[in-house]
Simulated scan of single mutants.
Amino acid sequence: MTTTSVLRAADAVIEQAASDILDQGYAVVKLSDLDATNLHNAISTAVRFFERPLEDKQAHGSTDHNYGYRPFGIEYSISPDRPDMNECFTLWASRLDLVPNAEDISDLTGSFLSWRDSLAPLVGAVLDRVAQNFGVDAAPAFEKASYLQINYCLPTPPERDLLQDKHEDGHMVTVLHATAPGLEVYVNDEAMPMLPAADEVVIMPGSVLTALSGGKIEPLYHQVRNHCLGEGERQSIMYFVNPEIDEPLFGWIDSADGQRADIREHVQNAPSMFGLPPVEAL
C-alpha cells in the first residue's frame, strides 16, 4: 500500500466512525496491525501484574484510589453496595509520578503509554470530525485530562446477574476493548451484546459529549453481564476521554436563551457518581 492509500484508508475509518456516532450512537473501529499489537501487549502485561500478590499490587495504588492500582470494592456503577466485580489499574495522561513506585512496573506503564499513543490520534481525529458537524473547527483538547483503565474480572456468584450495573461513563467518549463476552449496550432501550473482535475497539459517547452537542448525541448506556467466568478470564481496557477544563468549556449549540453553557462543572464532577475523585487536567 502506498502512503497515499494508507492515509485515504485512515480517513475513511475516521469518517465512518464519526458518522456512526452521529447516526447510531456508537462506533466500532478496526485497528491497524501495529495498534492491535499495542492493545494486546497492554492487556497481557496488565494480566501479569494482576497475578501478583495483593500486597505487591497495593504498593502501586494511590491513597485516593485514583492512580495506579485500585482494589475491588471501590468503584461502582449505581450503588456502593453493588461494587463492580473487578480490580483495576489506571494511568492518567503521562503522569507516572502519580502512580506510587511506578519505576518498579515500567513494563506495565510503558505498554499503557504505547497503547495510549495509538489511541489518542484516532480519538482526536474522530472527535474533530464529530465537532465539525456542529460547525466547530475542532473538539476540545483531552490528553491531559484522560486516562487508561483496565478491569480484571473476579469470580462472581451466579446470583449476581451483572458484573457492572447499567450506567453511562460520564466522559466525552470511552474507547473500549473487551476480551470475553459480557458487555451489553442499550440500543433503542434494549440491551444488545457487544464483543469487539481482537483488532477492534468500541467508541461509546458519554454525557459530556451529550452536553457539548446540546443533547444531539445521547450517552450510550451499557452494562456487563455475569457469564460466571473465572478470575482473570475477562479483561476490559478503556480509554476514558475527558476534555481539559483549565479554561471555560462551552457547548457547541446555543441553549434556548441564546447562550452557550460552560460545562466544566459537569465534566469535573461526573466521576463522583461512581465513587471516584473529580477530573482534573494533569
Rank of each mutant, 00 (worst) to 15 (best):
P181N: 06
A139G: 02
G170R: 12
R52I: 07
S272V: 06
H65M: 11
I203L: 14
Y67S: 11
Y152S: 10
G232Y: 02
S79R: 09
F142D: 00
R95E: 14
V185M: 09
N38A: 10
M204F: 00
I14W: 08
G124C: 11
K30H: 13
F112Q: 13
P193I: 00
E51F: 10
D104A: 08
P158G: 06
R264P: 00
M194F: 02
G124D: 14
Y69E: 02
S114H: 11
F50L: 08
R8Y: 07
S213T: 15
I14Y: 09
D117K: 10
E143F: 05
E168I: 03
A17S: 03
N226I: 08
E159H: 07
P158T: 00
F72V: 15
M204A: 11
M1T: 14
A59P: 08
V173G: 13
A18C: 11
F89D: 03
R52V: 08
I253T: 12
L276G: 04
P277R: 10
D107Y: 06
S44K: 12
G275K: 01
L249T: 14
A145C: 09
Y26I: 04
R160K: 13
Q235I: 05
A145L: 03
F50K: 03
M194R: 05
P53Y: 14
G251Y: 01
S118K: 12
A17M: 03
H60M: 07
G275R: 06
I263N: 06
D128T: 15
L163R: 09
F112D: 10
T90K: 07
L183I: 00
A18I: 01
M194H: 02
D165P: 06
Y186E: 14
E103M: 11
G170W: 00
L183A: 00
L154H: 02
D81V: 01
L113P: 04
P158E: 04
M85G: 04
K166V: 09
S236H: 05
S19G: 10
L195M: 11
